[in-house]
């Protein structure tokens, strides 16, 4: 019998760089998952061609791809990064250079 409370599923909103418009969703998509890897796995199931553009042969995040979660650039173990109930994810190209880089 249901207890009358429900644990909200963690749903992230994912936005991909416009440079991937040919193979990625062009609008933000909603995907479930407790970590960045979970959420990306769900998106890749819907957009299979996208996978190889974001992950390498060993399923690591590509060296020059940056993941932002709730406004923060996740540099350390980005795929394992835990998400909130409604995290906002951006998957972009990593850029370097300039004086402060």
């Amino acid at each position: 019998m249901p207890l009358g409370i429900s644990i909200p599923a963690r749903m992230a909103r994912v936005t991909f760089t416009a440079h991937l418009a040919r193979i990625a969703p062009t609008e933000p998509v909603i995907a479930p998952g407790a970590t960045v890897a979970d959420v990306l796995r769900d998106v890749f199931a819907r957009y299979p061609a996208l996978r190889g553009y974001i992950l390498d042969d060993q399923d690591r995040l590509r060296l020059h791809i940056a993941v932002f979660v709730d406004g923060v650039h996740v540099r350390r173990d980005p795929l394992g990064y835990p998400l909130n109930a409604e995290s906002d994810l951006y998957v972009m190209q990593a850029l370097s250079g300039g004086q402060d880089a």
Binding site: H19, L20, G52, Y53, I54, R62, H64, Q93
Partner: peptide, 8 residues
């Protein structure tokens, strides 16, 4: 050889 997205 796409810089960010790998070899295609």
């Amino acid at each position: 050889n796409l810089g960010h997205f790998g070899t295609k």
